[in-house]
């Protein structure tokens, strides 16, 4: 219970720093899986650590020890956790559970509504064309999912580029990418330190779909140009007034540098370079090792607390 219990609380900060470089360098499919599993595992490990600290604090309260069968005095003497640490841990754990539950409820509702929407869209085919001058294209998850494209977007693209757009959106639906983003956002709700991982996964699923479209058409440069053209058409026709980037907290970035750029130029730049290959395996292995450390330290801390309870057992 000394250091091991605090390690899962520190690792999310480390993962947050690594998220963006991993998203930029790893193969997008591998990056999506790795970041999603990391986010969920780290959220679980940090919540478990908070629970252990809070439990250790609870066990020192003299009245509680009569309910269970241990000595609060032994707990107070032998547990290195200060009471104020346990209290803060308890408060944080409560907040994390409430935030995660709220996020889960909201996302489940929205996915259900989207599925209903997908079923209600006109026609029976996968593709729905809306008569709208604003250039728009998106996939609606459902059974089956649907792809909505506005006439404004169709006009902005040529025939081959439309196929690329469809291949991209089909990859989202077939790969159930909304589940990855939902899982990481749930983890980030439970532990806000993991927010950069959620942002990174929102980007890697786009890259995943881009690479899928590139494999389908065999021309990465063509895909890059399609993404660029579609983005410029969307911004020119001004279909939307919302700014998801601002909502995610990426405000105040400076223009004209790829480091500070939004997701669209980064996707285009990634498509214009060589595809990320197997060289990135050591990077993935390192990230996996960090995860393993988080899991092991959680187990170690749980063990320590159990030993403490054994020591304090009265009869």
């Amino acid at each position: 219970m000394r250091i091991a219990v605090y390690l899962p609380l520190l690792l999310p900060a480390l993962a947050a720093l690594a998220a963006r470089p991993l998203a930029d360098r790893l193969d997008p499919r591998l990056a999506t899986w790795l970041l999603t599993v990391s986010a969920v595992a780290l959220a679980a490990a940090s919540s478990a650590a908070l629970a252990l600290l809070a439990l250790a604090g609870l066990a020192r309260i003299p009245l509680v020890d009569t309910v269970g069968n241990w000595s609060a005095r032994v707990m107070q003497r032998d547990d290195p956790t200060a009471l104020w640490v346990a209290l803060i841990a308890g408060a944080l754990l409560t907040a994390a559970a409430a935030a995660a539950a709220r996020m889960f409820w909201r996302r489940a509702r929205t996915l259900l509504a989207a599925a209903a929407e997908a079923a209600c869209l006109p026609g029976t085919g996968e593709l729905v064309v809306t008569d709208d001058p604003a250039a728009e294209a998106f996939a609606v998850p459902g059974r089956p999912g649907r792809i909505v494209v506005s006439t404004g977007m169709l006009h902005a693209l040529d025939h081959a580029e439309r196929d690329i757009l469809l291949a991209h959106e089909r990859a989202h639906l077939a790969g159930r990418h909304y589940l990855f983003t939902a899982a990481t956002q749930l983890a980030a709700a439970a532990n806000p330190l993991l927010r950069p991982l959620a942002t990174a996964v929102a980007y890697t699923v786009e890259r995943w779909a881009d690479e899928h479209a590139a494999a389908a058409c065999g021309d990465r440069r063509r895909v890059a140009r399609t993404v660029g053209k579609a983005a410029l058409a969307a911004s020119r026709t001004g279909g939307r007034t919302r700014f998801p980037a601002a909502a995610l907290g990426i405000l105040g970035r400076r223009p004209a540098s790829l480091r500070a750029a939004g997701p669209v130029p980064r996707r285009v730049a990634a498509l214009l370079t060589t595809p990320p290959g197997r060289r990135t395996l050591p990077l993935a292995a390192t990230a996996a090792a960090v995860l393993l450390a988080a899991a092991l330290s959680s187990i170690e801390a749980a063990h320590d607390l159990e030993a403490l309870f054994d020591l304090a057992r009265l009869r």
Partner: peptide, 30 residues
Amino acid sequence: EPDREAVLARFVDDLAAGDEQLLRRLLGAD
């Protein structure tokens, strides 16, 4: 619906300030 934007997979995100110049620089004559 709350966070509906989050479940829709959009083909292109909104461009931030500076993104447009960056795109033109990357893709040039394309």
